[in-house]
Each structure stands twice: as C-alpha cells, then as structure tokens.
Amino acid sequence: MTKRMIWTGGAVVLAVLVVAGAFFLFLRAPAAVVVTPFRGMAVEAVYATGTVEPVNYARVGAKISGRITNVLKREGEPVEKGNILAIIELGEDISRVHELEARLKLANADLDRARTLRRSGNVSEAALDQAQSAQSATAAALRGAKARLDDHFITAPMAGTVLRSESQIRVGDMAQPGHVLFMVGDTAELQIDAEVDEEDITKVAPEQEALIRADAFPGRALKGTVKRITPYGDPVGRTYRVYISLPADTPLISGMTTEINIVVRREEEALLVPVSALSGNSVWTVSGGRARRVEVELGAVGSDTAEILSGLPEDALVIANPSSGIAEGDRVRAEQAAPDGTS
C-alpha cells in the first residue's frame, strides 16, 4: 500500500511538470495575430484606361497639297456645318473658274441666239446642236473647276466646337492630303474610349457600372456606364475597345486621361479576410495551437480585403499577416485581432 501511495504521488508531480512544461512551450511559441472571417461587400471589377472624347466628332484634313493662306477658326470657337476653317492658296484654280464662267456666259448667249435663228429657219438643226454641245461642255468644265476650287476650302463637316487644330496651324504652313488639321466635335455629349485586356473582356457587358478616376479630380470616383464593346480586338496590343457613356453633368472634359474600374460583380454578403492574410491561393490558420495551410477559392481581391468563395470555415482562426518563414505544423500562439487584421 505504501508503494502504491508513493507511485501515485509521483504521478501527480509528473502531471504537474507536464502541464508546466506545456504552458512554458506555449509561452515560448511565436505569437500570431488571428482574425475570424467576416461578412461584407465584395466588388469584382475589370481595370481599364481611356480618354474622354465627344460622342460625335470629326477629324478634318486637306484633300490637296498647298500653302495655308487663311485660318478662320481657332480652338474653342463654335462652328456651324459648312463653316470655312482654313483656306489653301487658290492659285490657278480660281482663275480657271473665272475663265469658264465667262466662257459659259458666251456659250449661253450663243445657244439662245441659235435657238432664235432656228425658230425663224435661218440656221440648221446641226448648228443648233453644235451650240448646245458647246454650252454643255463648258458648263461641265465649270462644275469640275468649281469642285477643284472647293478642295481649297477646309470646312466643318458638322456643327460643334473646334476641339483642336493640329500643331497650332498658321498662315504659311503647308497642307498635305490626308493630314488632319482640325478636330471638330459636339461637347454636349461625352464618352470614354477605353482599352480592356483581352483576358478580361469576356466579363464586360453593356449597362455595367464604371467607376472613373482622373488626375484632375483627385479623391473623386466619377461614374459612367458601359455603352458598347467593339467586336474585334487589337491583336497586337491584345486589347478591346470599350465605350463608357458619361452623365450630362460630368466634370470630365475632352482629352482627359482616365483610369476605370468596370464593376462586373457585386456581392453584398461576401465572406472576407484581410488581403494581408493571403499566401497565393491559400491562407494560414491556427488549429490546436499549430499553423495549418488552407487552400481557398478566391473571388474579388481589393486593396484591403479578399473574398473567399470556398474552402474556409467561417469560424476559422486566420493568421492576419503570416511570416514568410511559417511552415505547416509550426507551434503558434493565437492573439485575437479585429476583422481588419489589427491587434
């Protein structure tokens, strides 16, 4: 009996030592700030960049080469359709028009005379036909000369505002065919011409909300709506053009560069963890005082939080900011933190 009592006492002492040792090891284990997943808003967005431009605008250039002799409209000035923006030296073309106008006047008079004489029988039908042919040929030549003369006048193809004149065009500058000299547009309705990576374009659809940022308005998230998507992308840049419509009261103006986030999915009650908790497609949790790596399916990842679609229990203890040297099964001491990962 005595031996039994002594053995039992030794067991008690051993148990105390084991508990004390475990507590000592627990205190020596590195601390890990943990957070439980929480519910909140998750927004998945596609990033794009773009430039503000009028919905309706036209680039205007010269059809002929020549020296600019007059510039009648400048940047910022309103124009009506057909207003002359600039004139290219008229040269011989205007002289040709004046010559043919005089010749047509004589041809008309000769035709009238031939008709009068034909009615009185004093000229033949052939003479009348000859006068008619001469008048028709001169009229046709005059129309052609006027068409060539019209090419000297660079005109506005639509009503609006002169948005830009190329290189501050001046009298004496040379114009070349196909060279854009002016941009005319209606600034009442604006849009953004945006570029979206081909890997993201399948997520984008008309009527999706677009959140817009511009350097001219720091700290402000402006809004727009996806209007249309080009069906054929740029195989070199590997992008697709997306047009973002803007509200009438937008503060953005033509020519501004923008960054855009197109909202493709919005989840009101998403399961979230701090983005600092991510290690690739996994998170580290604490279970039984040891670190455990858990593979998860990620959804939207923002600057502060990440959406967990599957793989993580809601009551898990997630290490908010795991160290780079952490390994599966490491002993850790959990310290509860706020949901955002702060202690």
Rank of each mutant, 00 (worst) to 15 (best):
E199K: 13
G237P: 00
V286L: 11
A188R: 15
L181W: 09
G288W: 08
W284C: 12
S120Y: 03
I192W: 02
G40Q: 03
A86P: 11
L278D: 07
E314A: 15
V180M: 11
E125K: 04
A194W: 07
R39Q: 10
V35N: 00
G302M: 02
S324L: 10
G160K: 09
S65G: 15
E166M: 06
A134P: 00
G21F: 04
L246E: 00
N108I: 03
R67D: 03
A205P: 01
G219D: 10
A210M: 03
R59T: 12
A107K: 14
G233P: 01
S323C: 00
I6F: 14
Q132V: 08
Y243D: 10
N321V: 03
A188Q: 14
L181Q: 12
L317M: 08
V283A: 11
L100C: 03
G82N: 08
Q208M: 15
V52K: 09
M158G: 13
A127E: 15
L111G: 06
A126I: 10
R290N: 05
A114V: 07
N83R: 01
I88E: 05
A159G: 15
N70L: 13
S282E: 06
G61A: 13
S95E: 12
E268G: 01
V204H: 11
T257K: 14
M256I: 04
G311N: 12
P54D: 01
R113P: 04
A194I: 06
M5V: 13
S167P: 00
T69H: 02
G121Y: 06
Q191D: 02
A188I: 01
T49Q: 15
A42Q: 03
L317G: 01
T2S: 08
T239L: 02
I68P: 04
V55E: 11
A291E: 10
